[in-house]
Write a protein that binds this DNA or RNA. Structure first.
Length: 435
RNA sequence: GGUGGGGUACCGAAGCGGCCAACCGGGGCAGACUGUAAAUCUGCUGGCUCACGCCUACGUAGGUUCGAAUCCUACCCCCACCA
């Protein structure tokens, strides 16, 4: 993933992949003229990135593959304030230690995608805490603020829209945020010769503000490239599921869930996603598109997409386990499985341990409350509703009685019970003594 | 600070003394059809071992009433216009 491809034009590559929304007018010449150092900022609001960050990450990957030098800037300083755009509620402020820890986590994840060891064009991490934390208010206003015309800032589309909106105002913090981001660009230009900033298309204003600031402060001509924002389909934001955000951190989102997320991509998004999130070439993407239209039920494209992305993030081993678990859970009846096989996939599939005595209790263990307890249903009522609707399965067999109970006989090898809700939600219960 | 309009379930939005656990739309979930897809159709969408019933909910706290999301009072918060 990190080896350098023959230097095709970065812009062309981004364009056919659907990663190019816009770029400043001289970006193409600058990229053609030689090695460029470019950066993208990441907010360290959590210790892990999520799949929503994959677009900018891939932006850096393509930058590096085209022979340029990527910088991942962690907004340790700006994160202390938070870019409030589009935020409905006040963001919890991070303390420094937390921000640092998050930065480390993000660095680790970026290492999966970027080559920090390359001799010719290594990737680099930077943290704007390094320059923002010691900067005084007065210095900032004098050295940076003076280069910003409030008139011009007010004319920016993003600002104008907010001012015109009757509902949401524009806080001073939000208004000033672009100064901080612009200053980041200036620092990166000075320290690392960085002359390119990339980001989501919502960052266009902040990026051009940075370009202007660098120039005003006597720096080189800089450039910007923005990616399209992934729109949400039918109200579901990209990267979210009913279970919440899909993270890159295996502790937060298991490789199995991660794999499943991609596997469930709808046909209409397949080709687009293959181009956006994998490094497969035109021929392969075309082939997979053909496969989808000819034999849709095989879901070849989905499998490939899920495999590619999962392998990068969780390694071959993580992918293998996810595939294995998927095969077991979706491959038919779970009843034929041995305890060993089930135990193996426990690591990745949502699971709970319950006391064996409860299964052996007189009258059995009531199913509905148990479902609430282990979290596969949100409440006992919800569980009963699901049973009434015919959406609950124990060991692959539909449960029809609202007052159904579990007994030792329901467990594979007297130990494992496989609960399923709908087609996709599984929960493994382990009633065995720990080894 | 003044005047007026508002705060209803995940979101939007009805209700304006009992028939309200609250119309409707979106979203979500389940079922059917499928391909762990989309579209479509059906059902569900506060909790309680839920048929009956009970409990908690309509910004917060009190009050009036046999009875309140609906009326009164105070407070908090939003919005508009005027200062």
């Amino acid at each position: 993933m990190t080896q350098n491809a023959p230097a095709t034009s970065l812009l062309d590559e981004l364009r056919w992949r659907g990663l190019l929304a816009d770029f400043t007018s001289h970006a193409a010449e600058a990229l053609a003229a030689g090695q460029v150092t470019g950066y993208i900022g990441f907010d360290p609001t959590a210790s892990s990135l999520h799949v929503g960050s994959l677009v900018p990450i891939m932006g850096l990957v393509h930058l590096q593959r085209a022979g340029h030098c990527p910088i991942a800037l962690v907004g340790g300083g700006t994160g202390l304030i938070g870019d409030p755009s589009g935020k409905a509620s006040e963001r919890a402020l991070l303390d420094k230690a937390q921000a640092e820890e998050n930065a480390r986590g993000i660095h680790r994840q970026l290492s999966l995608f970027l080559d920090f060891e390359s001799r010719t064009n290594p990737a680099r991490m930077a943290n704007n805490l390094d320059w923002l934390s010691d900067m005084g208010m007065v210095d900032f206003l004098r050295d940076v603020g003076k280069h910003f015309s409030v008139n011009a800032m007010l004319r920016k589309e993003s600002v104008k829209r907010r001012l015109d909106e009757e509902e949401s105002g524009l806080s001073f913090t939000e208004f000033s945020y672009q100064l901080l981001q612009a200053y980041d660009f200036r620092e990166l230009a000075t320290r690392f010769g960085c002359t390119l900033q990339m980001g989501g298309s919502d960052q266009w204003g902040n990026i051009t503000a940075g370009i202007d600031l660098v120039r005003r402060m006597g720096g080189p001509r800089c450039h910007g490239i923005v990616f399209p924002l992934l729109e949400s389909r039918g109200g579901v934001k990209f990267g979210k599921t009913e279970a919440g955000t899909v993270w890159l951190d295996p502790e937060r989102t298991s490789p199995y869930r991660f794999y499943q997320y991609w596997l469930n991509t709808e046909d209409a998004d397949m080709v687009r996603y293959l181009r956006l999130f994998t490094l497969l070439g035109k021929a392969e993407v075309h082939e997979l598109a053909q496969a989808t239209s000819k034999n849709p039920h095989r879901r070849e494209a989905q499998r490939r997409l899920a495999a590619e992305v999962t392998r990068i993030v969780h390694g071959q081993e993580g992918l293998d386990r996810a595939v294995q678990a998927s095969r077991v859970l979706f491959g038919g009846s779970v009843e034929g499985l041995g305890a060993d096989e089930i135990a193996e996939i426990f690591a990745d599939v949502p699971s709970k341990t319950i006391a064996k005595s409860r299964l052996e209790a007189e009258g059995g263990l009531p199913l509905a409350p148990l479902m609430a307890e282990v979290g596969i249903a949100s409440s006992g009522s919800a569980a009963r509703r699901l049973i009434k609707e015919g959406g609950v399965y124990v060991g692959g067999v539909r449960v029809t009685d609202v007052r159904a109970t579990l007994a030792a006989a329901d467990a594979v090898e007297g130990r494992f019970v496989v609960l399923r809700v709908g087609k996709k939600r599984h929960c493994l219960l382990d009633a065995g003594a720990p080894i």
